[in-house]
Design a protein around this nucleic acid. Structure first.
Lengths: 176, 176
DNA sequence: CGAGACATGTAACCTGTTACATGATTCC
DNA sequence: GGAATCATGTAACAGGTTACATGTCTCG
């Protein structure tokens, strides 16, 4: 249950509407998890049913009303339990690598086009990380320093991993 | 449509039953894609309906009968078209990193336990890659050399990526 | 005789994607 | 007036997981 726990994690920082949650995903968490609005609204309703969160309608006259969710005590318990539970090692699914697995069928111009596209994609992603690293401490101000510590290291790992793939793609582009 | 194209790729190597396909996934492709048996059988039936593959019953007296699938010409066309099509950049979902994102909530013993477990998991995975690299050329003998070339480089990338994560985990274990 | 590989599936459910619908307010 | 942002959703479908069911043959 990845999404549910991601939502608990976000709502443990502060109360939020479904819309706010979606923004948090897009801005801060997107490089480890994300979800569409419809999925988020659906899951929040289920979590309220299950008593992990409570919702209250906030009437606003200047903006549209929102439905604000708060994490409950059972929600916090569930979150902390999940944090300490073993990570089940699911296999990977990577569309790009799957293509390369069978790329021997295609001719070189096709292969080069795919690699080139991936190279540019990685450049975009690296730029995104740079940006994120720049305004990093200000972005989720509610975070306690321990959260920031972990998130900073996480960003380092993502960066290094992408760099490895970037070098690899460039090497292949030269070789083929 | 990741699974469908993975299946086409596998069946382009040689004809196979659903059971054989599952074994190919588990043995050779699992580090870029995988699926459960029920998913595979379901998708193969749909692909036959769509004319991408044809199935014939092979009656065996020594073993249970099997239903053998062959890729069709439209199937090959679909496969080659997919190989050259742009890869849509889906966001990542990584349960381990998601846990770390909120790990600041937990105390150090919990964090260390999670990191330690991941370290051991990576050691397992690295051993798996070593094994795979060892019997690599013999494992999918039907492969043409171009396929082997790509798959070898793929393995290199997976290896390097895991190594980066491994070093990172060990560094964190020292620091926290 | 029992364990394990061979071989194929069904049912129920959960997760994720896409397209669409609605309506307010704010800023140019 | 029109686009962008705020805010919430529904419907339909595709993809993925888990548990279970069924029956064979082979090997020790």
């Amino acid at each position: 249950m990845g999404l549910r726990h991601a939502l608990l994690g976000i709502l443990s920082l502060r109360e939020m509407s479904g819309y706010d949650v979606k923004n948090q995903f897009d801005r801060a968490i997107h490089f480890v998890w994300n979800a569409t609005s419809s999925q988020i609204y659906r899951e929040l309703r289920r979590m309220e049913e299950d008593g992990l969160i409570t919702g209250t309608l906030l009437v606003q006259d200047t903006k549209p009303n929102k439905y604000i969710y708060n994490i409950t005590e059972p929600g916090r318990v569930e979150l902390d339990q999940w944090l300490g539970s073993p990570v089940s090692p699911r296999f990977k699914k990577d569309e790009f690598l799957l293509r390369l697995f069978f790329m021997g069928r295609a001719d070189k111009t096709v292969a080069r086009r795919i690699l080139q596209a991936r190279k540019e994609q990685i450049e975009d992603l690296l730029r995104g990380y740079e940006e994120r690293a720049r305004d990093f401490p200000s972005s989720l101000r509610e975070n306690r320093t321990e959260l920031l510590w972990w998130q900073g290291h996480l960003l380092d790992l993502m960066w290094d991993t992408l760099q490895v793939e970037y070098d690899w793609v460039r090497k292949l582009l030269k070789e083929c």
